[in-house]
Write a protein that binds this DNA or RNA. Structure first.
Length: 289
DNA sequence: GACGCGTGGGG
DNA sequence: TCCCCAAGCGT
């Protein structure tokens, strides 16, 4: 229990970023959209797209009526576009099965596409003020250092990670405390070059008291991108986002020289539902033809 | 539990 | 220049 709630809450009140999904007027739907967009994606890239989305689709039912193609085009280059399809499907489920109201219950949220252990609890806490452990990569790092005295978090383990954070939560303002833990990891207790001089819990930090040991867990796998299917899929989708009309395969063939990889990627995009083939054999974003 | 899934900014 | 990394999820 080395993360004093009062210190953290005061620090958060003084220095937290003014993000639109944290404002009191933001709806639960707005919170959900932000959480999906923020998965593996920096705040600076999310913010403008989030504003566009909430203005265009202010409710789940509004988005449910849009086509998949429109949603994918509005997603733009945020990355991992399958998130956009899952959010669209979640919007349809909320509209049709939950009276257009984002569920409050973690177990119900977990049944929705694209909502996992983190996002379900983030919505419960940040949209509905519930006391439940919200564990993302920032929180895992803060707990690893400040509580366990390690240089960084080891491999994720949902059960253990939830338990670690649950015991920290104060009875009052638990949701704000959760936001503060995340903010601390995002702004101060960062992966590279943590700003310990600015840390509100410096005096209680187990990592400091432990002599700042280096991370000694298993090496983290570094994800390659150049030359992977992920890059090729991104190039193919970028062509389709940029046009209103279905395109011939010869047009898609221009984006990558390796025909085998190209065809494999186009096929996987079809399987994922990110691309559709028209009766004429042309290719387009789904749901418009 | 490991792997695949986009994209771009900063050190 | 590279290389690391950024509020995960589904299989």
């Amino acid at each position: 229990m080395s993360l004093d709630a009062e210190l953290l809450l005061d620090w958060f009140a003084d220095t937290a970023r003014d993000l639109p999904w944290r404002r009191p007027e933001c709806t639960a739907w707005g919170v959900l959209v932000s959480e999906i967009m923020l998965q593996q994606t920096p705040v600076a890239r999310v913010e403008p797209i989030w504003h566009e989305w909430l203005a265009r689709w202010p409710t789940p039912s509004a988005m449910a009526e849009a086509s998949q193609g429109d949603v994918l085009r509005a997603w733009g280059k945020l990355g991992y576009p399958r998130r956009a399809l899952r959010l669209h499907a979640a919007a349809q489920a909320i509209a049709e099965q939950h009276d257009d109201v984002v569920p409050q219950d973690v177990d119900t949220l977990l049944t929705l596409p694209g909502i996992g252990a983190y996002t379900a609890r983030a919505v419960a806490a940040f949209a509905y003020g519930q006391k439940c452990p919200v564990v993302d990569t920032n929180v895992r790092r803060v707990v690893a250092r400040a509580v366990h005295g390690a240089g960084d978090a080891g491999p994720p383990s949902t059960t253990k990670d939830l338990r670690d954070v649950e015991v920290l939560l104060p009875d009052d303002d638990a949701a704000v405390y959760s936001a503060a833990l995340m903010e601390l990891g995002a702004l101060v207790c960062t992966a590279r070059a943590p700003k310990c001089a600015d840390c509100p819990v410096f005096d209680a930090c187990a990592w400091q008291l432990n002599g700042r040991p280096a991370y000694d867990g298993p090496a983290k796998a570094v994800q390659k991108f150049a030359g992977t299917d992920r890059q090729v899929r991104g190039l193919l989708l970028d062509v389709l986002r940029g046009t209103d009309e279905p395109v011939a395969k010869t047009r898609l063939d221009l984006v990558w020289s390796d025909a085998g990889q190209r065809d494999r990627c186009l096929h996987s995009l079809l399987v994922d539902g990110l691309v559709e083939q028209t009766r004429e054999g042309l290719f387009a974003l789904p749901g418009e033809h």
